[in-house]
Design a protein around this nucleic acid. Sequence first.
DNA 1: ATGATTGTTAGCCAAATGGCTAAGTTAAAT
DNA 2: ATTTAACTTAGCCATTTGGCTAACAATCAT
Lengths: 130, 130
Amino acid sequence: MANQLSRLDQVFAALADPTRRAIVMRLCAGEASVGELADPFDMALPSFMKHIHVLETSGLVQSEKSGRVRTCRLSPDALLGAEDWFQQQRAIWEARLDRFEAYVMKLKKEREAARRPSKTTSKTTKRKGS
Amino acid sequence: MANQLSRLDQVFAALADPTRRAIVMRLCAGEASVGELADPFDMALPSFMKHIHVLETSGLVQSEKSGRVRTCRLSPDALLGAEDWFQQQRAIWEARLDRFEAYVMKLKKEREAARRPSKTTSKTTKRKGS
DNA sequence: ATGATTGTTAGCCAAATGGCTAAGTTAAAT
DNA sequence: ATTTAACTTAGCCATTTGGCTAACAATCAT
């Protein structure tokens, strides 16, 4: 029944909300209580707590309660996991660009070879222009 | 009236769905038509088109129609923008760790200085244990 | 022991999301 | 001139999301 969201799904969904991104940014600077975190936001506490809960189930934030105050801290692993995803995509993207560039270079050489049908590439025969 | 979502909101929301992440991954390898993109997914075309549309309004994907086929390509800027966010947070996080480490080092020195109240640090007086 | 702080639970509500089908529309193929 | 291919639009539906209030703990301070 439970829809088994992947970790990445939850992390990206958590970060899609500006309130939650602000919480994460705040927690990057150090741990804080729910009250401290909620203070800057014009929002009822129960609404705010929902955001905290989303962050916790996404794995981005951990918290523990001592006395009547719950202290939240960032757990950087989930953040790094998401960052990894970008880096992998960028790697694939850049590999593609490299291949494309290689392809263009090949075309260029072939065009040149077609224009000058000698077998060896002589550096002395430099030509410029179309 | 229009709720003016920030670009980051839209990018992260777009990436929170596994179908859409798969589309982005596919497009990292090169442009493709809607039909080609939709093929691997067991989903009605109109549903799939909604995903494409989400990706387009997030800025992650651009598309253009020629004839009856719409070709989609990744626009890497939005992707890089989101990656930047992670890197900024990580920078803050790491700065904090550095500060913490510096703090621990300071404590350590003070403890040591308190234990051995001479002004100069003599390397000869090495001591081990608690 | 009372009262103030600091969450927490329960439940309501409007809007957004992510799926569907059915019925267009436009370009290419025959 | 039809038919087929490749989207596109319109609209339905269930679930999720993100806000609220009201009432309930559970501590800490006095």
